[in-house]
Design a protein around this nucleic acid. Sequence first.
DNA 1: TTCTAGTGGGAAAGCGCATTCCCGATAGTC
DNA 2: GACTATCGGGAATGCGCTTTCCCACTAGAA
Lengths: 355, 355
Amino acid sequence: MAASTLTEVARLAGVSPATASRVLNGSARKPGSDIAERVRRAADSLGYIPNAQAQGLAKSSSGLIGLIVHDIADPYFAAIARGVQEEARLQHRMVLLATTTGGPQEEREAVAAFAARRADSIVIAGSRSAKPGDEEANTELAAELDRYCRNGGQVAVVGHPVVGAANTEGYHVVKVPNEDLAAALAAELARKHQGEFLIIGGPEGLFTSDDRIRGFQRGLADAGRTAAEVLHYPFNRSGGYEAGTAVAQRIKDAHVGSNGPARLCIFAVNDVMAIGMAGALRSAGLRIPRDAAIAGFDDIETLRDFRPELSTVHLPLEEIGRVATRGAGSTLNGQGTLAVDGQVTLRRSTETPLP
Amino acid sequence: MAASTLTEVARLAGVSPATASRVLNGSARKPGSDIAERVRRAADSLGYIPNAQAQGLAKSSSGLIGLIVHDIADPYFAAIARGVQEEARLQHRMVLLATTTGGPQEEREAVAAFAARRADSIVIAGSRSAKPGDEEANTELAAELDRYCRNGGQVAVVGHPVVGAANTEGYHVVKVPNEDLAAALAAELARKHQGEFLIIGGPEGLFTSDDRIRGFQRGLADAGRTAAEVLHYPFNRSGGYEAGTAVAQRIKDAHVGSNGPARLCIFAVNDVMAIGMAGALRSAGLRIPRDAAIAGFDDIETLRDFRPELSTVHLPLEEIGRVATRGAGSTLNGQGTLAVDGQVTLRRSTETPLP
DNA sequence: TTCTAGTGGGAAAGCGCATTCCCGATAGTC
DNA sequence: GACTATCGGGAATGCGCTTTCCCACTAGAA
């Protein structure tokens, strides 16, 4: 038994397919109530489910929202995804998920796939990158997005515009003030922290990472401190852990002469890296904040149960997901920049330990 | 400018739409290489992207996999989603996401929406429930699934069959031996733990929770221990926290007379509840494992960085997602039960503290 | 009464594609 | 060389639905 069609419903109700369509799927024209009732009963008894593909084809719109993340199991993306999902539900749309661990090339494929499915809008949450090898892929991604927009699609990018993307109508950017927030964080930390600073960044060329690094350095400079050394590691927990093992050795070495330099303050450009870092330091027998201070960025939900409580910059992740989806959902405001704000949040990991 | 169509490509290449279709979208018949080349060039120059909706309509299949979870930001579901996503990519399909915080009613809607989109298969990861008010909704959900299967859809349910679902062809269950694993956990804990046991469960009627409770009790009984008291709270972190505040008071009261009873051992039926519980106890000034032992279930990735290290039952969550997707992807093995296994994993949270 | 405006329903034309069927041309067989 | 199989391409149909256009009919105005 194949799923029953609108035509079958119409026949059973003794009306034309046109009328059945008008009754069952909101149309401007409302058929008479007796007829409507008859159609509805017929649909019910047949267990009619409209074929969204056919509807989409006829109306050329699909009720689909494409979401691109690097890794859905990363708490950062998961939180954004939750926001997207919420807003999508409000708009009676469904979310189409794509994960792209592998950079612009995969993102381009995802955009093409979404375009093929005629998604109404696309939300790109993964961070943009301008790594040396990625120029071409980035250009292609931009071209793909451009084409998608010109065909009436709506795009919202979280954090940073896609390199080289034309400022087409339908192209939105959810602006996250990464740089300013990182600067504010640095300012706060500089106030209460006398020792050196160390920055653990993602790969060079990753905008989110670069912005935060730049901001942090600016904050330090404004506070009259010397620039911090920057280490580059993968932009995930493993990267943080890796960095941590290296840093742990340094810290120990520094302590050798005893009466060593003041405690190091480490800024990891996102929370998962900070968590990895903390894990590595702990494995090495170091304690936080006793032997080093650590701060992260994002304020992912995981931090709630992480100890020591991690200083970070709070970002309204779900809200970001909602805003992006909303922005990409209504063509009303045309192109434009949507903004969200964050907040420096100091916790125990950067407190000065009692002597 | 609207997206270009196959017909336009064909015209530009000077061939019929049929030929263009055969060239661009893998057909059994391969047109001559010169013609193929011409078509491909035409498609390229027009930036042709096939309309998946139309393809789906014509072929009546969509390349879509529907995934139903309670909350995509919950680490448990996020991990499963990652597995589903991986496998979907292998199958060149896309994942359609639905979150249903609200029980069978919403799940039914999600299934209907997936059916409307003609998803090739559906993976249901949220746990089944048989709460008193849910009978009707459950019946409807079962009916909806049944209809979906009869129309050729493939369904994979994680953990527990949907109540009342007919054993239709195309209906798969990924069996998780919750009960046995919980029993094994209880056995291990009974060996090293002398004091009383306490079980923090989810709402009554939630199968996953009930199975684990039953298993744990059985394990205790087999070890000659008296049955544990069971408390019911919401099946998430908040539920665990709530339970924790109540339990903290008990523990303190018990200690009042000093020389009180042996340390309590708490089994929370999933890790997020265990984490919430641990958080509440810590807030109340209690320490783990000094003042109480805690064990969870699932071994979510978050545990890796949680302290104290939580004893739990390891479940291969990503693998579960993959297996479910695979099972629901190939109609080869027909209906049937797919199995995964877990492993009791004892860590510090249930160790006996040094006196 | 006659004409117009308005109303409610149906017929039919797509939406973009896959696919069946058909047909001309070429190759192969005796 | 006549006949059949095979191949490569095109015409046409249909997937299930929306929407425009058209028509019959009723009601109101002159």
